[in-house]
Computed example of a mutant assay.
Amino acid sequence: MSHKTLLRTGPLLPGGASPYGSLGLPGAGGLALPSGFTGRVVARSGHKIAGLTWHMAPDGGACFPDGDGWIYVSNSELPLLGGASALRFRADGSVGDAYRILSGTDLNCAGGATPWHSWLSCELGHRGRVFECDPYGARAGRPRLAMGRFKHEAAACDPERGVVYMTEDEPDGCFYRFRPGDWGDLTEGTLEVLCSSGRWRVVPSPAALLQETRHQVEDARHFDGGEACHYAGEVCYFTTKGDTGLWAYDAQTSTLDRLCEGVRAITAAPSGDLYVARETMQIDVIAPDRAVTPFLRLEGHEGAELTGLAFSPRGDRLYFSARRGRAEGHTFEVTGPFRG
């Protein structure tokens, strides 16, 4: 079932029966899960994992195929020492390797995976950059400066239109899209901003040397702290942390809809379900029929934020981190009978 059903059939419907049943008592790491699901901590900030000291402040993440295994990539939202690291999983779910894929960058918050299996790591600092990284660790990360210099939060690729959507973490931040000259090569292209009219207009100076990108186009539409971003089924979903909103931009009809409040991070499962991290240390599932029900609850991590939601390539494992500010964090894996 298409994600468009989620967007076009009316308001979200909180409550009702969960597709996975009620949550059980908290278990390993404080996870309360439905019957049939198990959870574990796969990495913890400051602790060794496969020879690597896992980074502080884990934030945005994504999974990539790797033979009969897979890779989970995670950003580090630390000043000056941010970057990103990767966990390589074997077919049986054990961690076979851990390594850095980006170092020496600033406040790497969220990002996004590309269809050609690279990771876009976004810097949150003033005039932040987007770095294209190799999750397999064979090539050094490269800045993609044509994608603009601003407080980058997240990115999401739209292969149907050959563009990359991006959010901006400012109280009056904008929603952008980058149109590369050649799809698959992000070194050159055109940066555009969504306007109040619903149209996209070119940002005159993406380098923002004299004027910030969000102030260069008079009719640009502004959002209260753009945050997570995910594209699925011709819809780009993004969140705004200032008002905790979940938005849906329908790329086919060029329409924007605000779906609900109280959401910080988001991903999609192969089934068409959306998984959204709440401010209440809970992850909910939003089914294609717009029913909203709890999927998991995390206890014993008061004051933390849930980040980096991502499904393994087969869709049978969900990864996320719980982090306290720009300090320690725990990276979790949940395994079970997710809907296909």
Rank of each mutant, 00 (worst) to 15 (best):
R100A: 09
S74W: 07
C122F: 10
S118M: 00
C109D: 15
A84D: 14
F89D: 01
V73A: 15
S74F: 11
G112A: 02
G111K: 11
G148I: 03
G60S: 11
G82V: 09
A86M: 06
S74D: 06
K151M: 12
Y99I: 03
R88I: 01
A140N: 14
C109N: 15
R88S: 04
R100G: 03
R40L: 00
A113L: 02
S85N: 11
A98L: 02
D134M: 07
A154I: 00
H152R: 07
R127K: 12
P115L: 02
A86C: 11
G83L: 13
G39T: 06
F131W: 15
D158M: 13
R44A: 13
E153S: 03
Y136C: 03
D106Q: 09
S74L: 12
A138G: 02
N108F: 09
R149M: 01
H55D: 11
L80F: 08
H126V: 12
P65F: 03
L107S: 10
G104M: 06
L102N: 12
F89P: 01
W70V: 07
F150K: 01
L124P: 06
I49T: 12
V130W: 03
A98I: 02
A140Y: 08
G46W: 13
V130G: 03
G141N: 14
A140D: 14
R40S: 06
I71R: 13
G46P: 09
A113M: 00
V130H: 03
S103G: 04
D68L: 06
C133G: 09
D66Y: 08
L87Y: 00
G137R: 06
R144W: 01
L120Q: 02
V130A: 02
P115W: 03
A138N: 07
A113H: 00
S94T: 14
L80P: 00
C109L: 15
V42Q: 00
D66Q: 09
H152A: 07
D92C: 05
S121W: 15
W116I: 06
G60L: 13
W116P: 04
S76M: 07
W54C: 05
H117P: 00
R127N: 08
L107C: 08
L52P: 04
A50M: 05
H152L: 07
H47I: 11
P143A: 13
R139K: 14
F131L: 11
S118T: 10
R40N: 00
G148V: 00
A43C: 04
G96N: 04
G82I: 10
